[in-house]
């Protein structure tokens, strides 16, 4: 999936058109007049399409960031797991060598006596 499949802003702007913008603004003004009594203040001067487009972009960025974090955590986890595994291997090998040393000591004691 291409995470950056954002619809171009020009496209949506073209669809909106100036006439639509004008109609939307007029509608908002009428609504504002209607609801002035109950204290409701509608947002004016912003196209719904623009806001939706912005939200869409934000969602894409957010998804990309979340996916990036997952990748970064996975990469760092793999890295440290590898070093930890090798450290464990060295530790086990060291214990085995100490055991071998003890065996040799016993062998020396046996051949000495």
């Amino acid at each position: 999936m291409n995470r950056l499949d954002v619809p171009p802003l020009e496209e949506t702007e073209a669809k909106d058109g100036a006439a639509k913008d004008g109609a939307a603004t007029a509608e908002a003004k009428t609504e504002a007049a209607k609801s002035a009594d109950d204290g409701y203040v509608p947002v004016t001067g912003r196209s719904r399409k623009d806001v939706e487009h912005m939200r869409e972009c934000e969602a894409l960025v957010s998804a990309k960031t979340a996916s990036d974090y997952e990748h970064v955590v996975l990469a760092y986890g793999v890295l440290w797991a590898l070093f930890a595994a090798y450290g464990m291997f060295l530790w086990r090998r060291s214990a085995q060598l100490r055991q071998d040393l003890e065996d040799v000591r016993r062998q020396v004691g046996r051949s000495g006596s």
Binding site: L90, R93, S94, L101, D103, V104, Q107, V108, S111
Partner: peptide
């Protein structure tokens, strides 16, 4: 630094293993 540290430990282990082999042969009738 981490790699060099682990490498130095491993070199010592390999040298010790060689020496122990020789020692084993030298002390076994």
């Amino acid at each position: 630094l981490c790699s060099l540290g682990l490498m130095a430990i491993r070199i010592r282990q390999l040298c010790l293993a060689d020496t122990l082999d020789e020692l084993w042969v030298a002390t076994t009738p």
